[in-house]
């Protein structure tokens, strides 16, 4: 089993989450922010600037004229879209490595994360009070613990699968029993280290066990994660080895037919995002 000190050392080793992105998200959350103050901040991050321009000029927004300056792009895209792009752009680099403990093909977890972010927006209507940007952040980063745990899981994958097969436990329980930690607990620790809010950390920690907390963000991301697995947008090595979150669907009174509608909409939106964003 690995020690807590190994995990802490690995978390320390992760590059810090972009300060420009975090500051920009903070600015957007202020009701009276100006496009000028936002663009003056973002301009210091060339990769982010390039991504914003790329999205503004992508097929998602069929514009006739090319947008070439940041401020025009920001005012054109609007606050909500901006916070998504900022976050996508900042998070993308962490998923550039092949996470062999969980992925068969490189990129599965990033696509899964995008899918959960999209699905959570589709399911947001179930909890109208919650904040869009917090939900998007929590959903996109819910699997961040896998960045750290992947190499340890890879070493013990045979044992993990054996335990799932013989004892019928889910992947998280097997991770905890064989590796010593689950990716959910580690994910919450990473997000705490990056100074994300308690709500966002709680989503990473409990999205596979939403019944343990009373948190609407956790509930939405848990369902969004379930839908993503259903449409085959999950990492293949842990894939479907999780318990369902059926009680939540019952609690929110989603019928089987409504779930089909949600699934088809989420699949379409995920496909659209992956094809168009390609950050």
């Amino acid at each position: 089993m690995i020690k807590m000190s190994d995990i802490i050392a690995d978390i320390e080793f992760l590059p810090p989450f972009s300060k420009v992105a975090q500051k920009a998200l903070e600015i957007i959350r202020q009701p009276d922010f100006t496009m000028k103050e936002l663009s003056e901040l973002i301009i210091y991050d060339p990769a982010l600037t390039a991504n914003i321009l790329k999205v503004a000029n992508s097929a998602l927004y069929a514009r006739t004229q090319v947008v070439s300056d940041l401020q025009t792009a920001i005012s054109f895209l609007g606050a909500k879209e901006m916070s998504s792009i900022i976050l996508l752009s900042a998070a993308n680099k962490y998923f550039e490595q092949h996470l062999e403990g969980y992925e068969v093909y490189h990129g599965e977890i990033w696509e899964h994360s995008l899918s959960v972010a999209v699905n959570s927006q589709e399911l947001k209507y179930l909890e109208p009070e919650i904040d869009d940007s917090t939900l998007f952040t929590a959903a996109l980063l819910h699997d961040v613990g896998k960045l750290i745990l992947s190499k340890y899981v890879l070493e013990k994958l045979d044992e993990i699968n054996e335990l799932i097969r013989t004892e019928g436990v889910n992947f998280i329980t097997a991770e905890r029993k064989i590796v010593g930690f689950s990716h959910t607990v580690v994910g919450a620790a990473v997000l705490k280290k990056w100074n994300f809010s308690k709500t966002i950390c709680e989503v990473a920690k409990y999205y596979k066990n939403p019944e343990r907390v009373n948190n609407p963000y956790v509930n939405i991301v848990a369902m969004a994660d379930f839908v993503s697995i259903m449409i085959g947008k999950s990492s293949q090595k842990d894939g479907l080895a999780y318990s369902g979150c059926a009680p939540l669907f019952t609690r929110y009174k989603i019928s089987s037919r409504q779930l089909d509608v949600i699934i088809t909409r989420c699949a379409d939106r995920t496909k659209e995002l992956i094809e168009n964003l390609n950050l």
Binding site: G168, G239, L240, A241, S243, G244, A246, S256
Partner: peptide
């Protein structure tokens, strides 16, 4: 046609 572990029949897509 897989299912998430122990998901109820109701959601068994």
């Amino acid at each position: 046609g897989s299912s998430v572990m122990d998901s109820t029949k109701y959601f068994n897509i």
